[in-house]
Simulated assay, not measured.
Amino acid sequence: MPADSVLQIKVTLADIHPPIWRRLQVPADLKLARLHLAIQTAMGWENYHMHLFTTPAGDYGLRDSEPGHRDERKDPLDTVAPTADDTQLGYGV
């Protein structure tokens, strides 16, 4: 992906009716830690809870070797969801 690529993502809250969602446009090379902050801002949240990205490449979160999460500060979004066919990227708070 070119360095200046932009990805459009839809963030939908699970198990909420009617659906609550936000559409974000973010740089493809945005680190997952920064994506977390963008989601927090878009949803009007204040970053009070732990979170986890669940991807085909593994789980990413705050650096912590005990649960085995990968460091979200190191990997960009385009490495864990590199194609348009990748429609699911789990995010939990």
Rank of each mutant, 00 (worst) to 15 (best):
L77N: 05
R63C: 14
D4Y: 01
G68V: 01
L37W: 10
L24M: 11
A33H: 01
A28Y: 07
L52I: 06
I9R: 02
Q40M: 07
E66Q: 13
M43K: 13
P56A: 15
G92I: 12
M1R: 14
T87V: 00
S5A: 05
H69V: 05
D86E: 10
D59C: 14
Y60K: 06
L24Y: 04
D75W: 01
Q40K: 03
A81Y: 00
A38D: 09
F53Y: 10
P2V: 04
L7W: 10
D15M: 08
Y48A: 15
K74T: 00
M43Y: 08
P2T: 01
K74A: 03
R34K: 08
R70E: 14
D15G: 09
L32Y: 01
H51T: 04
A57L: 03
P67S: 09
Y91H: 06
P56V: 13
D29F: 12
D86T: 15
P67I: 09
K31M: 07
Q25N: 14
T55A: 09
D59Q: 11
H69W: 08
L24Q: 10
A28L: 05
P18E: 11
P2Y: 04
V80N: 02
K31R: 05
R34G: 03
S5C: 00
T79D: 15
H36I: 14
M43C: 13
H49T: 15
L35K: 01
G61E: 10
H36F: 07
V26T: 04
M50E: 07
W45P: 00
N47C: 13
V6P: 00
D4P: 02
Y48Q: 14
D4V: 03
G61L: 06
Q8L: 02
D71C: 01
A38P: 02
T41W: 09
E66R: 14
H17D: 07
L37I: 15
R34T: 09
G90Y: 05
S5G: 01
V93D: 02
I16C: 12
L62K: 12
R22Y: 05
E72L: 05
M1D: 09
A84W: 09
V11E: 00
H51W: 11
A81N: 00
D71H: 04
L7S: 13
I20A: 04
R22T: 04
F53S: 06
Q88E: 15
A33F: 04
Q25T: 12
D4L: 03
G92V: 09
Q8A: 07
L32N: 02
R23L: 10
H49L: 12
A14S: 13
T12C: 07
P27C: 07
D15A: 15
Q25A: 12
Y48S: 14
Y48W: 12
P18N: 08
H49S: 13
L37P: 13
L89E: 09
T83N: 04
E46W: 00
W45F: 07
